[in-house]
Every structure is written in C-alpha cells, then in structure tokens.
Design a protein around this nucleic acid. Sequence first.
DNA 1: ATTAATTTTGTAATCATTACAAAATAATAC
DNA 2: GTATTATTTTGTAATGATTACAAAATTAAT
Lengths: 139, 139
Amino acid sequence: MEQQQISTYLLKNGIRPLQKRVKIMGYLVSKRNHPTVEMIYSDLVHEIKGLSKTTVYNVLNLFVQSGVALALNIEGNEIRYDADTSTHGHFKCRVCSGVIDFRIKQEELPKPMLDGFRIEEHHFYLMGVCSFCCNKIEA
Amino acid sequence: MEQQQISTYLLKNGIRPLQKRVKIMGYLVSKRNHPTVEMIYSDLVHEIKGLSKTTVYNVLNLFVQSGVALALNIEGNEIRYDADTSTHGHFKCRVCSGVIDFRIKQEELPKPMLDGFRIEEHHFYLMGVCSFCCNKIEA
DNA sequence: ATTAATTTTGTAATCATTACAAAATAATAC
DNA sequence: GTATTATTTTGTAATGATTACAAAATTAAT
C-alpha cells in the first residue's frame, strides 16, 4: 500500500495523517508480522530521523482507540499490534515466538450465551509449535 | 473443596501439597474470580502468616507449568489465573473489569487450517460490557 | 509571518514480573 | 530423635514494558 492510500485510510478513521503515523501504519500493513513496540521502534528508528519510542507507544494507542489496529495480548509480557482488523485468529509458536494469522469466518465463532452483554471484541488465540519448528524438532 | 481433596489433586499432578500451595489452590478453586497475583496476595496475606508475593508468583508459575491452572492474558497489563482447566471461554467487562467464564464445547471451537502445527492451548476471549454494567449505564 | 493548537520527545515514574542468595521448612538417613 | 540434605520460601534488587509529564518541535489557522 502506498503512503497516499494510507493517509486516506487514516483520515477516514479520524486520524490526521502525520508523517510518523503514516510510516508506522505503513510498517504494520506491509510487514504483517504482529510486531511489538520494540520491533517497530528498532526497525524504524534508522528510517525515521529522531523517532522516539514514546511516539511509537502514542501512535499505536491512538490506532487502537481509533479502531485501525488491534492490540494482541497473547502472552503477558508483551503487546503485539495488528493492522488487520477483520475477523481472524492468531497462532503463536512457543519455539520461534512467531505469530501467524489464520482465517475464521465470523459465523464460525462460537456464540456463547451471554444475554444482555454487549460484546465489542473477539480474540481467539492458539498456542503450540508451528509446522516449521515441528519439522526442525523431528529432524 | 476440602484441603484433603486439594492435596490429593495436587499430588496427582506431581505437585507436593505444601501448606501454602494448598491454600492458594483452595483460593482459586473456591473464589473462581480469575484473580491477579495482587488479588491473591492481598486476600491471603492476612490468613497465611508471613506470605510473600514472590511465593504467590512461584506457586502460580508451578501450577501453570503442571497444568492445574491457566494463565489468562486478556489484557496486557495483568495476568489472571484460573483453576478451571477445562475448555471454556472468558469475557472481560471494560466497565467493572470483572472476568466471567462461559461454556464452549470443544467441538464448537473453530478448527483452523493449520496443517503440521501442534496446537497445545486454546484461548477465546471476549471483551465488552457485561449485562450488569449495561443496565447501570441505561438507568 | 504570528499565534494557537497539536504532536513529539526524553526523562522519570510506575507497575508487574523475575533473579537470586539467604533463611526457613520439609524429607531422609542414621 | 537428631543430623544431614534437598526443597521451598522470603525479601530485596533487577528487569522490562508502559505511562506521565513538561519542554521542544511541528503543524494548522489567523
């Protein structure tokens, strides 16, 4: 996705498309690697002159509040971010620590009996060992 | 559940049923409130003479490793613990911060296409506003 | 170009968790 | 039952992620 498209997308969601915001969203969209703040910061600090880690936190919090990114709390010691806000699940490998998406259709999600509850977010996480690491272990 | 039953249960899972471990498991089992370490510590420190917060951490980590408790990472800033290790989901209310269980049958869980992956844990979290808080807001 | 509003920065504070060595407790051997 | 050994617990300090906040920088509006 180009900078121009990202700017338009942010604007449509009530976010002023300032340079650093566009770059951070561009990173999320293009890498799709569910990065932590640390990963985003260390990857972008070379590219964006004078980027501060606090800015990364600020911008990501803004993205989550505005609904253009999801905060994934798969494990307790880190938050990962995902620009794909459609219905899908996440798998985390305990060997390589990678997080990958898997598709779930909205209608496949269980519909628990929670009468009178307002449900705003669904999170479906799986954990285990990915196929790549399974092969490595067997070998 | 009585102390004796809890001791037997811990033993069966390879955990020596020392006094503080039995008390902490008893707390988890009887309250079923998905407590944080802070909640467990502040509730039990009066009852168990000289309890240390580090011990609560140690014991809970042991419980999770031994498979007699689940660590819930619903939101990034806290881990909650659950002695119910059967298949079920969790709802967290963003108003009152309470966490409640809901039943899901194993066969209701979506089966994503993850060929060659070893799946060890399922986590299904919902977030929103519980019925009690919905009523309060409307009133 | 000036002024006002917003954003970013950098440092310090906070909070949950872990590391680690010493003290306490429990299990085992004699 | 005491001595010895292994395990557990404690308490403090360290770590690491996140937030608070005020000053500096940037952007928008006049």
